[in-house]
Design a binder for these strands. Structure first.
Length: 431
RNA sequence: GGAGAUGUAUCGAAGUGGUCAUAACGAGCACGAUUGGAAAUCGUGUUGCCUUAACGGGCACAUGGGUUCAAAUCCCAUCAUCUCCGCCA
């Protein structure tokens, strides 16, 4: 969300930005917002005058009552009552205009960073760099759920009976691998100086509506029946919720957190052929990183954050590349965003495993996340977030890239870094 | 889940419908005076948001509603904390 004053002073710049994102249908919103703001201010001014008058007269009534001059007091009461309707009407206007303005402001996209490539949609995203040689195998790699099955590691059928489509049982070594990777990712981030955090896995509706639109909420969030609670779709929601309407002393910046949570998503909508197996499911676990920092440092943090993801995947022998989101594919709140994609030797292409975003001050403005300087002045922080790992997808990449086949049996080699979390094993073998 | 209590500025705390509350009093903090220097003492300042060129004005006493000419104060709902009981990893 942009600052309405900024929009008012730079309408052309805001419109130019909308065009860069190929969202021309949003152009009228700019003038609409300015008109709403002016109208709101006008109602506000008028109501302010009436309220000031009421306060003054009420004080006089108090004084007169104290002196026992009842009749004079009654006369003034009548004056206040006379303007009550007018004030009420203005107050209704004030709230309505404010709500409308907020609604419009939420739809006006954030100003994208000048470095972001211009493009219509995800087909025009730009590869930045590849890391590691693309893995090639001299045998046919089974589909990821089939790999898991070789190790008796997955039961989707039972999960279907118990919970329905979109769930799985992970078993034995594969389940252990899942936990190992999560624990490794956690420690990896702690070593980078991030504070480990386990947040609430359910959040209130006011937090949900603070972080996403109604449509997004409807498509993603599971509601707890009879309670004002939703299961988190990502721990980022509860993590950023921690900072809503807070003022943090500047000396505490940057705040760097890594959080773990299970994530629950309805995933309304079509599932493509590539999304079979455990690529897209209703319940998964995720280690996330978020940073709240000084605006001057946010780009620096952005680069650190995606490079941590690259480093983590490389330490597990998974080739990755970074892909920059073009203007048209960038969500409204974002200033700049990189996806980290892992190489799938099975599919012969990269697929998304992490999404790193710099939201500038847009999210902070929307949620009231402020920073107080030594001298007392305040500003909105910059917020960033990135996936550390989301195990199902990480496991797909991990298994495909580390799979071995000796002609008879399959095995998966465990990279050095992960062995302490796998009881020292260097390999897991097919039964 | 049941019973009770509490929620006011950085902290403690007073304030039970008005005229003496933006908020006493105490502490902390900042600046100044005093001092050879410090302590003590004295003085000044010390919440946020909106609006204004400025003066000023408005809003906010956990949060959201309501009653009233007027609400920290009365009423309703919600949330949090504490104590006791119950239940439970």
């Amino acid at each position: 969300m942009l600052d309405i004053k900024f929009v008012k002073e730079n309408p052309e710049l805001v419109k130019e930005n909308i065009k860069r994102k190929f969202k021309d249908h949003k152009l009228p919103l700019v003038d609409e917002a300015i008109a709403l703001y002016d109208a709101k201010k006008d109602a506000n001014d008028k109501a302010g005058i009436l309220r000031a008058n009421r306060n003054k007269l009420s004080k006089e009534i108090g004084m007169l009552m104290g002196q026992g001059k009842k009749e004079e007091a009654e006369a003034i009461k009548a004056q206040v009552t006379a303007q009550a309707d007018e004030l009420k009407a203005l107050e209704v206007q004030e709230t309505e205009l404010e709500a409308k303005l907020k609604d419009v402001m939420m739809k006006i996209p954030n100003i994208v960073d000048p470095s972001v490539p211009v493009g219509k949609d995800d087909s025009e995203n730009v590869e930045v760099k590849q890391y590691g040689e693309k893995t090639e195998k001299n045998f046919e790699i089974p589909y990821h759920t089939d790999i898991m099955a070789k190790f008796d590691g997955i039961d989707k059928e039972a999960a279907g009976r118990v919970a329905g489509e979109g769930f799985y049982y992970l078993m034995g070594d594969i389940a252990r691998l899942h936990s190992a990777v999560t624990a490794y990712a956690r420690d990896f981030m702690i070593d980078k100086g991030f504070t480990y955090c386990i947040p609430p896995f359910m959040i209130r509706s006011n937090v949900v509506t603070g972080v996403m639109s109604f449509e997004e909420m409807d498509a993603m969030m599971y509601k707890i029946e009879g309670e004002d609670l939703y299961l988190v779709g990502t721990s980022e929601h509860s993590m950023i919720g921690k900072f809503i309407d807070t003022i943090t002393p500047e000396s505490k910046l940057p705040m760097t957190l890594t959080s773990y949570s299970p994530c629950f998503r309805k995933e309304k909508g079509a599932h493509g052929i590539e999304e079979r197996g455990i690529y897209r499911i209703h319940q998964f676990e995720k280690q996330e990183m978020i940073v709240v920092c000084d605006p001057a440092e946010s780009m620096e943090w952005f680069d650190k954050m995606w490079s941590y993801s690259v480093e983590l995947f490389r330490s597990l022998d998974i080739p990755v590349r970074t892909l920059e989101c073009c203007t048209g594919d960038l969500a409204d709140l974002k200033v700049k965003s990189y996806d980290v994609e892992a190489w799938s030797p099975k599919q012969g292409k990269y697929f998304e495993v992490c999404s790193c975003s710099n939201l500038g001050d847009a999210q902070a403005r929307r949620l009231g996340i402020r920073v107080k300087k030594e001298d007392g002045t305040k500003y909105f922080a910059h917020t960033l977030n990135n996936t550390v790992i989301a195990p199902p997808r990480m496991l797909i990449a991990f298994l495909e890239n580390n799979l071995e086949f000796d002609g008879e049996k399959y095995s998966v080699k465990i990279p050095e870094a992960l062995r302490p979390y796998m009881g020292g094993k260097s390999v897991i073998e097919e039964n």
